[in-house]
Design a protein around this nucleic acid. Structure first.
Lengths: 357, 357
DNA sequence: CCGCGCTACTGTACCGGTAAAGCACATCGA
DNA sequence: TCGATGTGCTTTACCGGTACAGTAGCGCGG
């Protein structure tokens, strides 16, 4: 017995294939009685429903939305902030029935899911700007939204006030009286260790914005920070490594600004393991307001961003763009949304310890 | 100007559509010179590559694999263990070019991504057994692998030795001399609080296996544990709540067995916040060997499972099943793989404190 | 000089649906 | 009584590819 298709059912019921199609996809287009009959026969024949692939081809909608992440996925997937963002998108998308397809930035030669998987649109989130994935999406003329990426003309984007948030964090440290300040950042290409001019090497967009913000406030106070570059992902273990390096330095910094809360948690752990106290000996500031920052002891001073709002905004921007694309409107929207950030002072920052000179 | 398709290019080059198709999809099937010509013209016309939807329909492969998760996704996505598993799958899949599509267990009426999205196969992972998603996947006759689900005949599955792992954890506690033991579990339907007979209410599969393991060892030692049911997801905050409840109980338990490390971390935090010490006052055991358990202070005694191996096994099972399906082999494999677990004793367990009677 | 096999391309036949226009018949207001 | 308006189903025309079975031309051994 061959495969059961709309035609099989149509023949059996004695109606046109179109009527069967409508029974599944447009219940309003036929009488309730006919729909009953069709569905009954379909059930009897073991029909599962319209084939997704065929429907995608004919109707032009795939029923799923892509998310472009880092190359390896593994790093992104274990980042609580990133996954909260993704979850927010998923929850927003749920009522529409759209699924979420994870697209690796690109792997080896010739394998480009961003080019070869059927999707209705995409969110570009943790993508290496040098990756080819984005280029393919744009060439496919798919509706795309940039999140935490360098905003590009003609492409809707969602960002947060990274720079002013970082500036507020650094200003908070300056106001407390710190003069010997360190920075721990990721996403700057190169080897692990202290670097001279963090802005000289090309950092990813968000990384650069936060760097700029920190340097805004520190520079105005005449402070030249010690910067530790952690090229790998922004995890707690990476923070631990950076923290170990910093506590061993002379003079030892009295405050450490971290690119993320996860990184900050590792830094705090390294400080504790070195027998020092936060914030008595060293103040630590994170970024993101990861739920982790509230669980930590001491609770972490950080810069809050509303990741769920970011997800909602991204979803709205994407669905808007998708509808526009379906209606054939050519004009690309170029709304560039920037969500606020806010310094949240908790227990990990205090005045620097008294100097003995 | 209409859309550029294979035909457009074929006409322009003066060859058949099939040749153009081969230029993109089967480079071995035509001469290098011809391929060059075709690709050059394609590029000139701004052709992006074969349309994924059409290719899916014609060739019968979608280029993506589904993962059925919890209903809301949000919970699953912020679980480090779950995401490590997912990352492992993604990494295994990367060389094959397959993407990963997240399918919510099912949401409201009529919206069933598991039925309506084109996929080549699926991993069923954190799925509520009552969900309709799995039923649809099976009806579609898609290759499916169950992971951490109740193994079903005819469906390949991957599980870990939950029961014996849990038994080892409880035995460890018994051997240390504990007699007043508590259990914190999730996935058991009902309200938060202490319950009498944890096995009476229908727990999800893994939850039940671990319960059985704990009770094996405790029962043999004549211990009847206090069980706290935490119906929500297995997060640190849920553990905190359960921990608060347990430290306030009289008599206070001297050891707490937790369904997961995340839960255990919350329990430990609650114990600390109550002014007690782990393991001096209360011993705590987790499950999973979440990276978190090594970062915690004290480092957590737990039951290790190799989540990455689980991901690899699931991927292998799935790709095998997919190839088999493609070759038209009807016979379903019913390999039921069970990976080992291992008790890892760290610093969160010790002898019970001296009783004052 | 023939036939054989190989390479490189072509032709035909789908894959399983949906959109949109068409058409027959019923209903309704004027 | 007649056109206007629906309702419910059918017809036609794709959507953009791939699989597979040809077939033309060509080098080559005998």
């Amino acid at each position: 017995m061959g495969r059961v298709t709309l035609q099989t059912i149509a023949d059996r019921v004695g109606v046109s294939r179109m009527t069967v199609s409508n029974a599944f996809s447009n219940p309003g287009e036929l009488s309730a009685a006919m729909r009953e009959r069709v569905l009954a026969v379909a059930d009897e024949l073991g029909y599962v429903g319209p084939d997704p692939a065929a429907r995608t081809l004919a109707s032009g909608t795939a029923g799923t939305v892509g998310v472009v992440l880092t190359e390896t996925l593994q790093g992104a997937l274990t980042d609580e902030v990133a996954m909260t963002f993704l979850g927010s998108i998923a929850d927003e998308l749920a009522p529409t029935g759209l699924a979420l397809t994870l697209l690796p930035s690109s792997s080896r030669e010739g394998i480009v899911p961003a080019r070869d998987v059927a999707i209705d649109g995409a969110v570009v989130y943790l993508c290496d700007p040098s990756s080819s994935a984005v280029g393919w999406l744009l060439r496919r003329r798919l509706p795309v939204v940039f999140v935490d990426q360098n905003p590009a003309p003609g492409i809707p984007s969602v960002n947060v006030e990274d720079r002013s948030g970082a500036r507020a964090a650094a200003q908070h440290i300056v106001d407390l009286g710190h003069r010997n300040v360190a920075i721990v950042t990721t996403g700057v290409p190169g080897e692990f260790g202290v670097i001279d001019d963090p802005l000289a090497v090309g950092a990813a967009y968000v990384e650069r914005q936060r760097l700029l913000g920190w340097l805004d406030a520190l520079g105005a106070a005449g402070i030249r920070p010690t910067t530790v570059r952690q090229p790998h992902s922004s995890t707690e273990d990476m923070g631990y490594e950076a923290g170990q390096l910093l506590v061993a330095r002379t003079p030892r910094p009295t405050a450490i600004l971290c690119f993320s809360d996860a990184l900050a948690a590792g830094v705090v752990r390294a400080i504790h393991d070195a027998g020092l106290k936060v914030p008595d000996d060293i103040s630590v500031v994170g970024f993101d307001d990861n739920p982790l920052s509230r669980r930590m002891r001491p609770a972490l001073t950080t810069v809050r961003q509303d990741v769920e709002a970011k997800g909602r905004a991204a979803t709205t921007a994407l669905t808007t763009a998708m509808e526009r694309a379906k209606r054939g409107t050519v004009a690309r929207s170029n709304r560039h949304l920037v969500l606020p950030t806010e310094l949240v002072v908790r227990d990990s920052t205090a005045k620097p310890p008294r100097r003995k000179r």
